[in-house]
């Protein structure tokens, strides 16, 4: 599945804009090739297929992201964990029923960054069946990379990779970019706007992919320690930060903080918006 991406920029000519655009497309595709878990030749696939067998030496850029993932795991008390994709084997969010406790528990031995042996530049998943994925980092990283490229060239741009948004600078005349907010309630509810001058916005939300059983909502953001979504958590969390990677991590962790989500984000002084 794909999602819609969009870059708006101010340029002196449409040729230079087109050149800049092509450069960004190449960058996004390069990142996708590098980290996609769907591609047989990606480094992520290689790491996962070597689980329980042998360590894999990774490139500098992947090492950088693994370092970041390790920090995120540590700073979130284990709530942000790139090994939690294993729970996909238990949860099917296109169905209308939740998995049994046994099915979820069966995944637990395969989840946990603390089990991973990460000694730059070598990574080793010690148990066969363990896997990592950059699903919660890759798109955000790509949006930031595109922003970096455009900033290097001095462009004023707004990047939107499927909802991960970066504004490189205010529009000419110190005007903000207007970020439309569509409420989860689709077409019917009042929608609002966020004036964004510069910075990155990422959203984590579960109302599009969730299972509802007896009025209880089970979102697709799962607690890596239990394999279950947070009870009484927000329906979506949006955070603004200096880059998308950081904003996305904070939004995902907040989703798992349950009722504490808002307080946790406010305590760090972030600009945030929650839908319950």
């Amino acid at each position: 599945m794909s999602c819609r991406n969009e870059i708006q920029l101010f340029s002196d000519s449409s040729e230079t804009a087109q050149a800049a655009f092509e450069e960004t497309v190449e960058e996004v595709q390069r990142i996708e090739l590098l980290w996609s878990r769907y591609r047989p030749d990606s480094i992520v696939t290689c790491i996962n297929e070597s689980a329980g067998r042998k360590p894999v030496v990774v490139d500098e850029e992947t090492a950088g992201l693994l370092d970041y993932a390790a920090t995120a795991w540590r700073e979130s008390d284990g709530l942000f964990d790139i090994t939690s994709g294993v729970f996909r084997r238990a949860w099917n969010f296109s169905s209308d029923h939740i998995p049994t406790k046994e099915t979820v528990n069966a995944c637990l031995p395969l989840v946990g960054w603390d089990k991973v042996v990460w000694q730059r530049p070598e990574i080793y998943l010690p148990v066969s069946g363990m896997e990592i994925d950059f699903g919660g980092l890759g798109k955000e990283y790509a949006a930031d990379r595109v922003a970096s490229l455009l900033v290097e060239h001095g462009w004023i741009a707004l990047i939107n990779l499927g909802g991960d948004i970066v504004a490189s600078a205010p529009r000419p005349g110190d005007e903000p970019w207007q970020i439309g907010i569509r409420n989860p309630d689709a077409a019917s509810r009042l929608s609002g706007h966020l004036p964004l001058y510069s910075g990155a916005l990422a959203t984590s939300g579960d109302y599009e992919r969730c299972i509802e059983v007896n009025g209880q909502r089970y979102g697709h953001i799962l607690n890596p320690r239990s394999g279950w979504p947070a009870a009484d958590g927000p329906a979506s969390v949006s955070v603004i930060a200096q880059n998308c990677l950081l904003a996305g991590t904070l939004a995902t962790v907040a989703m798992l903080k349950g009722v504490e989500a808002k307080r946790w984000l406010d305590s760090m002084g972030t600009v945030n918006h929650l839908v319950w």
């Binding site: 599945m1 819609r4 087109q18 595709q29 970020i179 966020l194 599009e208």
Partner: peptide, 20 residues
């Protein structure tokens, strides 16, 4: 200039904040 393209895989959600 407005440039838009479908490229990246793996994201299916329509976000509430989406600058859609």
């Amino acid at each position: 200039c407005l440039l838009s393209v479908l490229v990246l895989g793996g994201c299916a959600n329509v976000q509430p904040w989406e600058r859609g």
